[in-house]
């Protein structure tokens, strides 16, 4: 088992942790953080993979991911803040007027 295997494992664990955070938490901010963790887990896997294949494109991808994540967080936070301002809640499940 090469190093990359352990790093991938780390990435998976991080992904699971992020996923669990998304699943379990009701707070919008925390869910967002969970998503970020998942994205970063992917980044780690990319790094491990580029380690395995000896190619740089995986690592390059990580930079893209960072940019994307930043954009996403910016938009997301703006949305959440706006919503919180309107309805006074950042509990995900209070947003349930649309259903059925």
């Amino acid at each position: 088992m090469a190093v990359y295997g352990q790093v991938i494992l780390l990435g998976m664990m991080l992904f699971v942790i992020g996923g669990a955070c998304v699943l379990i938490r009701r707070n919008l901010i925390m869910i967002l953080i969970g998503v970020e963790i998942m994205l970063n887990a992917a980044g780690i896997v990319f790094i491990a993979a580029s380690l395995r294949w000896g190619a740089l494109d995986g690592q390059a991808f990580v930079i893209f991911i960072m940019a994307v994540a930043a954009a996403e967080v910016a938009v997301g936070l703006a949305l959440i803040v706006y919503c919180q301002g309107r309805s006074g809640s950042i509990n995900a499940d209070t947003y349930n007027t649309l259903k059925g």
Partner: peptide, 17 residues
């Protein structure tokens, strides 16, 4: 089936996973 779409995000996320 309509009840499935409960309007609650946590439920939706749960179904995603």
């Amino acid at each position: 089936l309509r009840e499935w779409t409960s309007g609650r995000l946590s439920g939706y996320l749960f179904m995603l996973f």
